[in-house]
Design a protein around this nucleic acid. Sequence first.
DNA 1: CCTCCACCGGAAAGCCGGGTCA
DNA 2: TGACCCGGCTTTCCGGTGGAGG
Length: 394
Amino acid sequence: MPSFDEFISESRIFKDRDVLSPHYIPDTLHFRDHQIRELMSSLAPALMGKKPRNTFIYGKTGTGKTCSVKQVSRKFDEKAEGKARIVYINCRIHNKPYRVMLKVAKAVMEGFDKQGYGLPHIYERLLEWAGTGKQVLIILDEIDMVKNLDELLYMITRANDELEAGGFSVIGISNKLLFKEDLDPRSKSSLYEREMVFPPYTANQLQKILHQRAELGFQPGSFTSGAINLAGAIAAQESGDARYALKILSRAAEMAEEADKGKFTDAEVKAARELVELDIVREAIDKLPENHQVVLYAVARLSLSGSRYARLDDGDDGYLFSGEIYEEYTSLCKKLRKPPKTARSYRSYLNDLEMLGLLTCVESGKGIRGHTKLIKLGHPPRELMKIVSKHLEE
DNA sequence: CCTCCACCGGAAAGCCGGGTCA
DNA sequence: TGACCCGGCTTTCCGGTGGAGG
């Protein structure tokens, strides 16, 4: 008779998987002292009943923006004692003024959980609430995802003008430097009262961070110091992204575990890197709506079945013509018994796919009649087709 | 030099599914 | 139940754009 102990036995590698997850917030955040202090000084006025300045935080992915802000807001909550509230909002989910305000209202006022109220009603209720002298800090993570951000920021400034006491302030977080360009000048100046930058981590810093997590997350003796340093070096070379570094580490650990080894080394880390690259592509594709996937598949098919290619001046070649991809897309749709979307929609899909780095587009230049886009795949076509087709079969 | 090509992408309006309130 | 509200996704409309062709 087998014993359950066999299956619930402790992992030889993992001690605490949560520590390796990107959502984990360590007690001490290395190399962010300066930013954390600055942020705290920025928010401190709210604890004395005054309105803090709006703050904009910029930094690439995996530079500890969200982590630092969350840590600071924890500390803030401990001190606030009902005088002030801090609300964290992920704008990927709450990406419209209405949704943001609704989320704020729900977080701040007990019993406010009905949808279906109009924005003006929510606004009035929030004004009444804050008007009793309370400070509301709204953290907008991935603020560039908010549509009509101008409207939202304007609403907040207007609220502050109407209030005798209390107020609203915004802490915006983004990894896009260019996004402020298409902001209304008035919103720009209000959002950028204070600006903070989170630089990418260097190899040394990443290595120290990874060591810290490894001590907490892995069993003692289950990893070599060299493996950790290698993971840090790879990630630093790519982008200085701590999240990416952690992914490599987790993957390497999983590989060792599956191979029933007691520890992981440089070899596992090197192999894990490849897997993580594919993981990232797969995650991006999984979240894609159906039509985007079909377009991606069309591009992959054409880049295999050597149709017409364009060559650029700098010698870069293998670009496909937008018009031909659209034809391929429509015929694929017919095979799948789905009505194809218009060319205008197709153009938006292309742009979305480019944003995600799944393909590259360039404007056509000399040698090509008319004016069009030339498109190339960002990843090996066979891998992409495998991933997409799995999804398209329902 | 003018016109045509083969597209581009913004704005606005329409449709749909999911929700609330009285 | 009907009148609203919201967000997401489309389609329609339409004014560009830069090189090729004549």
